[in-house]
Structures are given as structure tokens and as C-alpha cells.
């Protein structure tokens, strides 16, 4: 095999298999300057393993399709530069380990779509029609950070609550969808509370916020750099405390007849 002047041959281990089982398979493959891991996976498909299954789309870190684990760390294949590895090290690529395997590097991420459906959507204000929504920038800044999410589900994959405990999947929505609850609860026009849906209480009661022990792995792996724990999960925990664990807030709301969000 020939390589360009700046190229080299890298050692890879790629997990190959399906629901029946599988194993790490060794490859030696050409790497050129400026390439990312997804380029190398594509080269493997082109030259050595044409039936290697991998999910990908944009190659720009925006579609969230090519999530996998590289040297044991959840990452996007297309955003992991080969230059972060030494030429001597063997690079191990496996599928996401929190979700059911389909084949090779492709997993079934349906769990996440099920959890997405369980979060009640935006409740439009009753007194405003389409085109009449007006919001101040300072009121939407917080939510806009969460809208950067590309739904790669790396946070869901790395969260030990479900990664290490399959039985928690039913009760726990995961960081991505607790962030969605936080986004809606902070939304200046969301009318859920007025229409009887208390997102603060349901975050704890129905979406498993209490399972989160704020160990911040979701924030560590987020390719968009969203501060999921500090800006979504902890504020949501504090809001749940307002509803469920703080007698002073409860008393204050009763005396001042505030109940409504301000």
C-alpha cells in the first residue's frame, strides 16, 4: 500500500457484529493529513470491509448521525481528528454501548425517540394567535443554548444511569430530554402551567430527574459544548425543589397567592 508523503499506516480495531455477537477486528489502514476518524472508516469500507455498517450523513458535526465510541469515549466520528492520536497507538472504534446493536457501528437509538414523545410539547398561549408571539432576547437566551442540540445522543449514551443500568431506562428520560423539559419550563411563552401541566413537578415524577447525580458526563461529551448539567439539569433540579422539597417556597406561594411563574 502506498501513502502520500505526509500519510502513515494506522492500526485500528473496529467492532464487527450484530445481535448474535461480534468481536473487535484488526485493520491497518492509510491515514492522510487533515483526516477524521470517519474518513478512515470510509476508507476501510472502500478498501477492506465493504459490508462494514456505519451511520453517517453530514460529515460536519451537525446531523448527529455518526455517534460512536473511539478509544472508549463517546464521540462523533466526523469531528474526531486523527491528529489527536499518536501514530503508534491502536485506535478502537465501537458502537454506542448504551443502546441495542443493529450491526457493526450502527445501534438502535429508538429509546431516545420514545423518550422524546413522552415530553409534552410546547403549549401555545391561549390569548395569542400565530404571528403574535413576541419574546425578549434575554428571556430566550437560556433556551437557545439548548436548541443547539443536534441529537447525536452521546449524552444519553454516556449517562451511567441508563448505560450501566438497563432497568432504569423506563423511568429515566436521560439528559437530552430533561434538557428539553428545562427548555420548555424556561420558555417565556410556554403556557403549560396555566393549563395544568407542572413541568417542574413532572420532571421529577415522570421523567426521573432524581436519578441524575450531576456527575457531568453529558456535558463532557456534548459536541456542541452545551453546558447540560450546569444550565439545564441543575436549574431544573432547583425548580423541582421549589415544587416538592422547599416548605418556605410553598408557604410563600400560598401566602402571596403567587403560584404562577414569573
Amino acid at each position: 500500500m502506498t501513502t502520500a508523503a505526509t500519510g502513515y499506516i494506522a492500526k485500528f480495531k473496529v467492532w464487527r457484529g450484530d445481535t448474535e455477537g461480534g468481536a473487535l477486528e484488526d485493520f491497518e489502514v492509510e491515514v492522510n493529513e487533515g483526516e477524521v476518524v470517519l474518513d478512515i472508516i470510509h476508507r476501510l469500507q472502500a478498501t477492506q470491509a465493504p459490508d462494514l455498517a456505519v451511520r453517517w450523513n453530514c460529515k460536519a458535526g451537525k446531523c448527529g448521525s455518526c455517534s460512536a465510541e473511539i478509544n472508549g469515549r463517546p464521540r462523533l466520528l466526523c469531528m474526531t481528528r486523527m491528529s489527536v492520536f499518536t501514530r503508534e497507538e491502536t485506535i478502537t472504534v465501537t458502537p454506542l454501548r448504551a443502546f441495542p446493536i443493529v450491526r457493526d457501528l450502527v445501534t438502535n437509538v429508538g429509546f431516545n425517540y420514545q423518550k422524546a414523545r413522552e415530553v409534552p410539547s410546547f403549549v401555545p398561549p391561549q390569548d395569542l394567535g400565530p404571528g403574535e408571539y413576541r419574546m425578549m432576547q434575554e428571556d430566550v437566551n437560556r433556551s437557545q443554548e439548548f436548541r443547539k442540540c443536534i441529537e447525536c445522543f452521546l449524552c444519553q449514551d454516556t449517562c451511567h444511569v441508563v448505560r450501566d443500568h438497563e432497568d432504569n431506562k423506563e423511568a429515566f428520560a436521560g439528559p437530552r430530554f430533561l434538557m428539553r423539559v428545562a427548555e420548555l419550563d424556561m420558555h417565556p411563552l410556554d403556557d403549560a402551567a396555566e393549563q395544568g401541566l407542572d413541568r417542574k413537578a413532572t420532571a421529577q415524577e415522570e421523567h426521573g430527574l432524581g436519578y441524575c447525580n450531576i456527575t457531568k458526563c453529558c456535558s463532557e461529551v456534548c459536541p456542541e459544548g452545551i453546558k447540560i448539567t450546569d444550565n439545564a439539569l441543575i436549574p431544573l433540579k432547583e425548580r423541582a425543589v421549589d415544587r416538592k422539597y422547599d416548605p418556605l417556597v410553598w408557604l410563600g406561594n400560598k401566602i402571596m397567592r403567587r403560584g404562577q411563574d414569573t
Partner: peptide
């Protein structure tokens, strides 16, 4: 391509739960 012989199934539970990629190691971080 010829696929590698599958490893023996990992012990059930957590990251090695049935249905997930059959990887024995509890982590692969280097």
C-alpha cells in the same frame, strides 16, 4: 468480508446487557 469469530457472550448486566454490542470489557478507555 470474512467477519471475525464472535467472542463468547459477555456477562449480562449494565454495559454488557443483552442486546447491546457484545463487548466484554467494561470500558475501552486508553
Amino acid at each position: 468480508t470474512e467477519r471475525p469469530a464472535p467472542d463468547s457472550p459477555p456477562p449480562a448486566g449494565g454495559v454488557t446487557a443483552p442486546g447491546r454490542a457484545a463487548i466484554r470489557e467494561r470500558h475501552l478507555r486508553t
